[in-house]
Design a protein around this nucleic acid. Structure first.
Lengths: 204, 204
DNA sequence: CGTATCCTCAAACGATCGTTTGAACCACTC
DNA sequence: GAGTGGTTCAAACGATCGTTTGAGGATACG
């Protein structure tokens, strides 16, 4: 029972990397199982089908990401001294951290692909596992931007989401210089994103 | 189908729609030629291969888009009274117009997929047909935002690109209300995008 | 030891993929 | 009317896809 968990995890990790690199349809189960060092039939044995594997790849990282984002939001939600930058930090930093210590550096690319896909079943799965988090953040944004109409707020949150997804999935456009540490670079990236998004949200 | 159009054009139009809907790998030549009402072998006869078809789908729309963007930029480039909003307008409105009168409403979705794909040959083709336009806009942005370092400017332009691509491909998140015309709705969309992007670029 | 349960494996399944082929068709020239 | 060049057609090609199968290995418990 424990040896199967190892096989499962190896499939998930290999799938995450290959989906990020070649897409959901572009990555075949034969490439995938070869990279994971497991038998071809192991995917259908442990996950039932390729579609269920895709869902589980999402679920493993989204559970981490959701938990961290909600924990960060909880600490500042509703407080009178909370700023827009604080809320954006709670939204952005968990995603950047996941790229580093979760081993899920490639997950943001997978997520960007999911946005590009307009597949209905995948979108439904994402909204079920993602919707309640976005709703809480939206409420907090609304509190801190009382001048915005609901329509304008939705527009701008959508634009922020697009900017962040694009930036975090396309890592490497702005390369880390050799004289700054990984942690420092991540901090600078977060500040760039937060400053841009906060200013965009506050637009007159 | 439109039997008056040439076989080549019918293939390009059907391919654009199917690539937007199912992706480059997800759309098969058999679905594609059936939708276009042409023989399966016509794709390889007229385009050589599926990959070349993908490139031509991009080329047909990008040529339009580039020409309109550069024409709009030329009218305001270098003038002392030009604002950031003017440059963004020259960048954004041609893309929105293409969605309407070019019949290429689906092209922005295809473009968003291309960003998600990290396929090297496709990226190379895009930079060859797209790079000089982005370079001219970047120069103009730099002139209007003298306080920004080169690194910061690249960062923010990348974020703007992500926001716009996401918004224009995801058309329909903000639905047009029945009491506003198509033209009015497009105008409102452009104003939303420009206001957000300008404010983000001007961030302290 | 026998047996039950979970897992892995090589092999094969039918379906679908992009591409190629060679004959047929069509408008046009000499 | 024979010939020519461009185009369309049905059919087939080999490759690869996700999935299934049935035999065999590994481990734990009686």
């Amino acid at each position: 029972m424990n040896s199967s968990a190892s096989t499962k995890e190896r499939i998930l990790t290999a799938a995450e990397a290959l989906f990020a690199q070649r897409g959901f349809e572009g990555a075949s189960l034969r490439q995938l199982t070869a990279a994971a060092g497991v038998n071809l039939a192991a995917v259908n044995y442990h996950f039932g089908s390729k579609d269920h594997l895709v869902e589980q790849v999402f679920k493993r990282r989204l559970d981490q990401l959701n938990a961290r984002r909600l924990a960060a939001l909880k600490q500042i939600s509703g407080l009178p001294e909370t700023t827009l930058e604080d809320v954006l930090s709670a939204f952005i930093r968990p995603a950047l951290d996941l790229s580093h210590d979760g081993g899920g550096g490639l997950f943001m690319r997978v997520l960007a692909r999911a946005f590009a896909e307009h597949d209905d079943s995948l979108r439904k799965f994402l909204s079920e596992n993602y919707g309640h988090v976005m709703r809480q953040f939206t409420n907090e944004f609304a509190r801190l931007l009382p001048g915005l109409s609901k329509e304008e707020l939705y527009w701008r949150i959508d634009l922020v989401t697009g900017a962040l997804t694009h930036a975090m999935s396309g890592f490497g456009i702005i390369q880390r210089k050799s004289d700054v540490s990984e942690v420092t670079h991540r901090e600078q990236t977060a500040e760039h994103l937060i400053r841009f998004a906060a200013s965009g949200l506050r637009a007159p």
